[in-house]
Design a protein around this nucleic acid. Structure first.
Lengths: 153, 153
DNA sequence: TGCTGAGCCGAACGTTGTTCGGCAGTCAGC
DNA sequence: GCTGACTGCCGAACAACGTTCGGCTCAGCA
């Protein structure tokens, strides 16, 4: 991860669909060089993929929420099973496994409040390992798609 | 947003860096057609961008947390100002503006626990409008990068 | 000094992006 | 039913691009 790698990563975070030649020009190397760097970054697992960012409303996901979930017993089996269950639900956007008073925080979205409610009471609360959950509606979500590298510790 | 648009969006969510010809072949149209569709999807704001997914550790972000924040007074000015402040901090990955007992949930990451703590007490808690916040460490974060469209309501 | 390896470059060639003219299907108005 | 306008798709053409590979430079080391 030298300065060149960082510059390439920054460009791909900003716009993953620009041409390799554009990237090479912006970071100041030959296209063959940046191509090889990108190949190595993927191989080393630094770059995990490239994804289009889609407006939620276009996917019929007008309402979003964070759901804090407590499960019992707190064993690996229960945690892994619940994690896999949650991740596979279509309404779930992302699953956080947490330390602290909540065991999971789940970022979900649905067509509207009615569907969200139905999802919570029909799907989520079915699970026997859940001993409690708390849902908070998201008014607005600002996501940074190009987090900068922090200085080395 | 017909079936063709959905198929194209799905492909770009899965891999935003594949060639337009590949996408066209997979969804069963001519490359010129899929190119035009993609152009329109961007123009309509359905596709908001393309971003590389980078391993957090490669950005020196070994520890992540969710911070629930309460601010007062709950006026638009205070909310907008705090939102802008939070979004601009390098440690912040994303900002949720919430309904319910917490006003914000902030997804942050830092090099290690020490830096995280320093960030919380030196940067975040400086803000006068904050009347309380609660930090929960994230053990694991599973993100779905290709949420499927939900059935129309 | 000479050797070795790593990293970058530039040329070359097959592949792709992008534009544009044309064609088929649809629909409104008559 | 006919006409005309419109929309969306296709395929060809050319410029631009991706990808490979041989060779060059330079640092490190003995």
């Amino acid at each position: 991860m030298d300065e060149l790698d960082s510059a390439i990563v920054r460009e791909l975070q900003r716009d993953a669909r620009q041409s390799n030649r554009d990237i090479a020009r912006k970071v100041g190397v030959a296209p063959s060089t940046s191509l090889e760097r990108i190949r190595l970054l993927r191989e080393r697992g630094v770059i995990r993929g490239y994804h289009a960012d889609i407006a939620p409303s276009a996917l019929n996901r007008g309402v979003q929420a964070l759901v804090s979930v407590q499960v019992r017993p707190l064993s690996r089996g229960v945690i892994d099973a619940f994690k896999a269950f949650a991740a596979q639900l279509p309404e779930v956007l992302s699953v956080f496994v947490m330390a602290g008073s909540d065991d999971f925080v789940i970022h979900v979205s649905a067509q509207d409040n009615e569907h969200l409610h139905a999802f919570l009471v029909d799907r989520l609360s079915q699970r026997k390992e859940i001993v409690g959950f708390r849902t908070s509606i998201i008014f607005q979500h600002l996501a940074k798609h190009d987090p900068a590298p922090l200085p080395a510790p």
